[in-house]
Amino acid sequence: MVRTLGFKQLTEEHITNNVFRVYYHYAVRKDDILHQQVLASFPLCDVTVEDLSQNPQFCKLLATLTQHVDSTGLTVSLKTELDKAEQKLQSQRKIWLRSQGLFQTLKEMIQEHCVKKHYSTVPPDQNMFYDTMEKCLLVARCVRMLDPSNTTEKELPNVLGLEPQQVLQLMPLEKNVQRMKQSLPHELEKHLKKQCLSLLCYYHPEWENESENLKCTKLMYLATQMDKDKKKAESLKESSREKTILLQRQTRLYLSELIKCIQLLQTLILDHRLKIQTDLDKKKLDYFEGKCELVLQKIKTEMVDIQLDTYTPDTISAHRKIREKLEAELKCCQDEKQSVELKLASFEVLGKEFQALAEEYCKLRQEIEMKNWALKEFTHYNNK
């Protein structure tokens, strides 16, 4: 019965641990999925997985905001209005680009005609067509500049005081304009075809020597191919931007880890510097002591070598004899000095009377020496 109870308790505890472990792994996995969703929803937000893990309430707030805000930070309503405005802007832009493209194409046609006219002979009707088109473009441009729009002040004076009607009088003849309008679609189509074929040859240089019909056939697929290439370039650009953001995050993470490593190294240096410095100083002291001892021994060796080179056996024996003689003379002098000091001490016992006699004796000795010197000099002079 005890064994059965123990087995039952062990089984219940084991089951509880397994359930807790499974629930823990499920919660961790769920948090990881939530973190990845939040980071994917806010790619421009400077937040890491570690920040979300340390601030779960902030993570929940961001997860709730994903239902109302897009990846750029705009609300759903504002995004809808922005998309409508963007569509309207794109339609207006298409209209403007269409007119601007047509205007630029006509200008290119006129410029090519002017260049061609300088290098070759052009038929008169073609000259009339391009001259009429150039004048019409110039008059239309001037009229547009003189015609005030809703965005300008109508009270401003006109350029040079001209009115649009005055400029319209400079239009070419009506028959020439009508003839130009009839020929314009054909000439425009021919020019655009030439430009498209040039673009095709630029895009695929290997197709330059093929026939015109084949080029026209391949030209039908050029727009699709360019659209694919454009989308591919945009996808590469987006991928590059994502990689740049990832690189910035990794760089920031790397710098934070590097700063932690530097702080750890600083701590190790501050904690162990004194101990290491003491051992190092002790080793340096032992080294310098040994070096000083070696230098002293070397000095002694040099001194002995100098003495051996200076004092030979003959010099040493001579010095020994001189020393013995000097010591003997020194001993004699010391004995004489001692005897004199004894006599002087015996004379000092007599007192001041002996001092007076000694002074008188000194004077007499000096007089005797002077007289002897004078007698000697006198005798020497007489002998001469």
Rank of each mutant, 00 (worst) to 15 (best):
S183N: 12
A345G: 03
V167S: 13
E327G: 13
L236E: 14
A318T: 08
L350Y: 03
H191N: 07
E367N: 00
C196P: 04
P56Y: 10
Q90A: 01
E257T: 10
L264F: 15
Q195K: 15
D32S: 11
P123D: 02
E50K: 15
Q263R: 15
Q169L: 01
L160Q: 13
F347A: 02
C261D: 13
I316K: 10
L197K: 12
E163P: 01
C136I: 02
I322P: 02
Q36C: 01
T379P: 09
T217R: 11
L285E: 02
I316V: 05
E155C: 11
E341H: 12
T217W: 05
L222W: 00
T132Q: 08
L280A: 01
N55M: 07
M109G: 09
L342E: 13
S211F: 06
D314V: 04
S77W: 12
E112F: 06
N209V: 02
E348V: 01
K363L: 04
S211H: 09
K193R: 14
L170W: 11
Q92E: 11
V115W: 08
K190Q: 04
A40N: 14
D281S: 07
V143C: 05
F378S: 12
K30W: 01
D305N: 15
L62T: 02
L265H: 10
T267C: 11
Q57K: 12
K321W: 03
Q263D: 14
K30D: 00
P43Y: 09
K88V: 00
H319M: 06
K117A: 04
C216G: 08
M128A: 13
E13K: 15
Y361F: 09
N372S: 11
N209E: 11
K237C: 03
T251S: 14
Y119N: 07
V143S: 09
Q277E: 05
I33Y: 10
Q126R: 11
V295T: 14
D125V: 10
L39M: 10
G101M: 09
D125A: 12
T66N: 08
V304P: 15
I316M: 03
H204I: 00
L268A: 11
D70S: 03
K376I: 00
K30T: 03
W207H: 06
W96D: 01
L357S: 03
V49E: 05
M226Y: 08
